[in-house]
Amino acid sequence: MVEKFESKRVPPSEHIILSISDLQSAAAAKLPTGIRDFYNSGSTDQITVLDNSNAYKKYKLRPRVLRDVSNVSTSASVLGKTIDFPLCVSPAGIQAMAHPLGELATSRACAKRNVHMGISSFSNYSVEEICEASRAIAPIGHVMQVYSMKDRAKQERIIKRAEQVGCVAIFLTADSPVLGVRYNEHRNDFRTPAGLAFPMLEKTSEMIRADTHDASFVGFNSDYHSWAREIPWLRSITKMQVWIKGVLTAEDVLLAREYGCDGVVVSNHGGRQLDGTPATIDALPECVEAAAGQIRVHIDGGIRSGQDIFKALALGAECCWVGRPAIWSLAYDGEAGVRTMLDILYTDFRRCMQLTGCSSIADISKSSLGIARKDGPLARL
């Protein structure tokens, strides 16, 4: 006699987080509309912010079988240090809107996962506090993001403070002579919430809230910038590595090489600056070719899975950076949320390496990818 039984359907739980998409949904349920829109939206018609993620889909993985992947290693040497896998957290501003501990929580999570973290000029905690938050956990590398500022003395103070506490590199954001037009910020009259300061920009909450986000940016940022003006000056005041963030063309990679920069980050500012620019994964190949192994190439924008990391490495990137996933994770569960995000991406990337027959980062190459075509079979790269 076969015993009858009823299968009980278990309702989905909001606490089951399996993917970056789950984290995005969990964050959306917690964040007020104006703050959620500020983090998630791109400029004008949102074309680039959507393309960044969608562009990865046309690149298909070409797995190899019957390979021994029992001792797979995901470790990579990035910015002079060995990290657990080639993924770091991008400099993203105003993290305390997502969670009160903001950048402090992110720093601790990065240290526990042994990856690097970028610190935004718009951070709600000082570079000293952020670096100290991770120091007792692990000696990770922090990167200080800076803009070209009208007040050169203040810009130099930011850089000197970062160097003094052990930051390993400067990421000069080069794609923002002016701020991109973000409709949601104007419609919501977005202003940083009361009580949050920008210590690196030496701005109190009262000073920040006196202006809109756009007006505040115009007030301190310089559009009078150039390769010849910025790079030699940075070299004269710091021994940290100098990287250019916001590169999308081979021509600018060649200029970065000419001016002796240490690396470039292929980035379109998460689709928040000029709408209609290419997805970063599509701009990556020409930038890698122009680098010709003479300058390091990293990428950010649209990375939402371990497969995306794998695809970027196969196309020549040394390391990937994520911004919005860290914000969503903070909103979901602070430091534990960011650690969850990093663990998801680490596990996903490691599994992808094993299922494509790669035992080390060095095994990942263009031969691991194809590109989907509408008019025929998969095209080899």
Rank of each mutant, 00 (worst) to 15 (best):
V143T: 06
R209I: 00
V218C: 04
R350A: 13
T238R: 05
S367P: 12
D189S: 03
C261E: 02
A312W: 11
R272V: 12
V338R: 09
L79C: 11
D363L: 13
H99C: 11
G316V: 15
L179S: 10
I17E: 04
M144H: 02
L201C: 01
R36Q: 08
L345N: 10
A105P: 11
R324E: 03
T280L: 07
E6Q: 15
L23A: 08
A312C: 15
P377G: 11
G301C: 05
R152D: 00
I281V: 15
I208Q: 00
N221K: 05
G42E: 02
A133E: 04
D275R: 13
C358G: 06
L179N: 04
R296G: 15
A331M: 09
R62P: 04
N52K: 08
P32M: 09
Q164C: 00
V168E: 04
S7T: 12
D275E: 10
N40D: 07
K203R: 06
V65P: 09
D51W: 08
L50G: 03
S267I: 08
P325T: 12
P377I: 11
G102V: 10
G102H: 07
I295P: 13
A312P: 14
E230W: 00
C167M: 00
P86C: 11
R257M: 10
P11R: 08
E128T: 13
V115G: 06
G260N: 06
N71G: 07
K160D: 00
P63Y: 04
G376N: 03
M149I: 11
Y183A: 01
Y56H: 10
V338S: 08
A133P: 10
S359E: 10
V242P: 04
V49W: 06
L18F: 08
K150W: 00
G271A: 09
S148F: 01
A169H: 02
L345E: 09
N221G: 00
D51A: 15
S359R: 14
